[in-house]
């Protein structure tokens, strides 16, 4: 906190009331009632699960990565935990393109009739995974017709390397080509339907690259509307009794509390080099964590592993903590916080 804002706190000496605190954010032109977005991969395969997260105070929700064909994913154990974080290798299980699109359509329909009017406009972010640029474009084209508000490209899953090799997110040229191909595919949909899709494309990046900002810049130039940063960090946990990796996939993606400093640095670096907004994801478990990612440059904040540490109502808890922090620090809008580390 700067000396100036400390003085301000001292002068006023009282916290603002809830009504004057605005936690809504505008992300890629879409208004979110709060900045917390259910991250892809956590309780998000079915319409019911997406709505359950929204009912538990998520400002928006991201679907589990959708592939053209159904995937069973890896065998259990798919998750191993300790107090510092979680390692997962779910292996992109999903019911495939057709079923997943039906789930999104169902979620949109049920939300539009939800008894709580405030939830009716909650945004759903589609998420797509494929093994080739052509398949990415093909899947994105279909998902764009499902009614989701945004589309996230998962080109950074660390858990299917044995199957598919290096993720696209490791290579700026491939990442840009992929982004271009998806943008082109969506243009085709617009031509076919003679409607403006207005569907922002978010590109989800991996932290384990020498220069994440370079990749962010490349996908921005290729037409990306936003960056999701970061995906999980490759890791491994061993069982000391047997000396063997616990996960069936041996290695997994590390998330949770101890991922946060890595996310903060990546977001900070990306914010410096691109103009498009950032959905900051990585280790957010408390309100202060969310504020830290926003200060680094995130316009909205992904929450995933916190569901394990604090329950499905973690969205409500984190949101309340953000409001509490804003009150204590005499801040009325998140605009004052976003990118503060750069000013």
């Amino acid at each position: 906190m700067s000396a100036k804002s400390q003085a301000k706190w001292g002068e006023k000496g009282f916290a603002k009331s809830d009504a004057s605190i605005d936690v809504s954010v505008n992300f890629c032109g879409i208004k979110l009632r709060n900045p917390l977005v259910l991250a892809s991969g956590i309780v998000d395969t079915t319409a019911s699960s997406l709505i359950f997260a929204i009912e538990n105070c998520a400002g928006a929700v991201t679907c589990k990565s959708i592939s053209l064909e159904p995937r069973k994913g890896h065998g259990s154990p798919i998750i191993v935990t300790n107090e510092s974080g979680m390692l997962n290798a779910v292996g992109l299980s999903n019911p495939g393109l057709n079923s997943s699109i039906e789930e999104i359509k169902d979620a949109k329909k049920r939300l539009s009739q939800h008894k709580n009017k405030e939830l009716r406009n909650a945004a759903i972010i589609g998420n797509v995974f494929a093994t080739s640029i052509e398949d990415f474009a093909k899947a994105a084209k279909e998902i764009s017709k499902s009614g989701c508000e945004m589309l996230e490209l998962n080109l950074s899953c660390p858990n299917v390397k044995d199957e598919f090799g290096e993720p696209f997110a490791c290579n700026p040229i491939l990442a840009a080509e992929l982004t271009k191909a998806v943008k082109k595919a969506l243009k085709e949909v617009e031509k076919e339907t003679e409607k403006n899709l207005k569907m922002p494309i978010l590109v989800k990046l991996a932290p384990n690259v020498p220069d994440i900002a370079k990749i962010a810049k490349a996908v921005e130039a290729a037409g990306a509307d936003g960056i999701t940063a970061i995906n999980t960090m490759p890791g491994m946990m061993l069982d000391l009794k047997t000396g063997k990796p616990i996960l069936t996939n041996k290695s997994g993606g590390f998330s949770g509390p101890n991922l946060k400093p890595i996310a903060v640095k990546c977001i900070y670096d990306i914010y410096k080099s691109v103009k498009i907004p950032i959905l900051g994801t990585g280790g957010v478990t408390t309100g202060k964590d969310a504020i830290e990612l926003m200060m680094a440059g995130a316009s909205a904040v992904g929450v995933g592993t916190a569901v394990y540490y604090r329950g499905i109502d973690c969205f409500k808890k984190i949101n309340d903590e953000i409001v509490e922090w804003m009150k204590e620090n005499n801040i009325s809008s998140l605009k004052e916080i976003i990118g503060k580390a750069h000013r």
């Binding site: 956590i42 309780v43 998000d44 395969t45 079915t46 319409a47 019911s48 699960s49 997406l50 709505i51 359950f52 997260a53 009912e55 589990k64 994913g73 259990s76 798919i78 998750i79 935990t81 979680m86 997962n88 779910v90 299980s93 049920r110 592993t305 569901v307 394990y308 329950g311 499905i312």
Partner: peptide, 19 residues
């Protein structure tokens, strides 16, 4: 159930979304 600890979402039921 894949994870058993409320994360993966495979045991979610319709229409309540509960795990």
């Amino acid at each position: 159930m894949k994870c058993g600890i409320g994360v993966c979402g495979s045991c979610i039921v319709d229409p309540t979304g509960e795990r």
